[in-house]
């Protein structure tokens, strides 16, 4: 199942995403949380802490700065560039390449 969480800035998207992700993971479901924000902070609300959240964000920026031909696939993004959080939620910070601008 794929759930998109949308809304205006500051409306509560990240809080909503984090509590839902962890609640489902706690039940033993495999949960992948994708942080698509330009200023990623889902890691904090999931409980991965400041440092790990920043590490993932920095990795995304590096990927974005690299050339598009070596952009990771979704699997790679989640397996190699993601991180496990509390309750086993797998968090990946999604790059602009996965989330392209139109045109």
């Amino acid at each position: 199942m794929r759930v998109a969480v949308v809304g205006k800035g500051g409306s509560g998207k990240t809080t909503t995403s984090a509590v839902i992700a962890r609640t489902l993971a706690r039940r033993g479901l495999r949960v992948v949380a994708l942080d698509c924000d330009t200023n990623p902070n889902l890691g904090i609300s999931l409980g991965l802490g400041d440092e790990e959240t920043e590490r993932l964000a920095a990795m995304r920026d590096e990927l974005d700065a690299g050339d598009a031909e070596h952009a990771p696939s979704w699997d790679e993004l989640i397996d190699r560039f993601g991180s496990d959080g509390p309750d086993g939620v797998r968090l990946a910070v999604v790059s602009r390449i996965q989330n392209p601008e139109p045109g």
Binding site: M1, R2, V3, A4, V5, V6, G7, K8, G9, G10, S11, K13, T14, S17, A18, I20, A21, L24, L29, R30, V31, V32, A33, L34, D35, C36, D37, T38, L42, R90, V94, N99
Partner: peptide, 14 residues
């Protein structure tokens, strides 16, 4: 997997 995507603010990604 259940995928939860915390999208960018606004409706751009949508």
């Amino acid at each position: 997997a259940v995928v939860i995507a915390d999208l960018e603010a606004g409706i751009g990604t949508l």
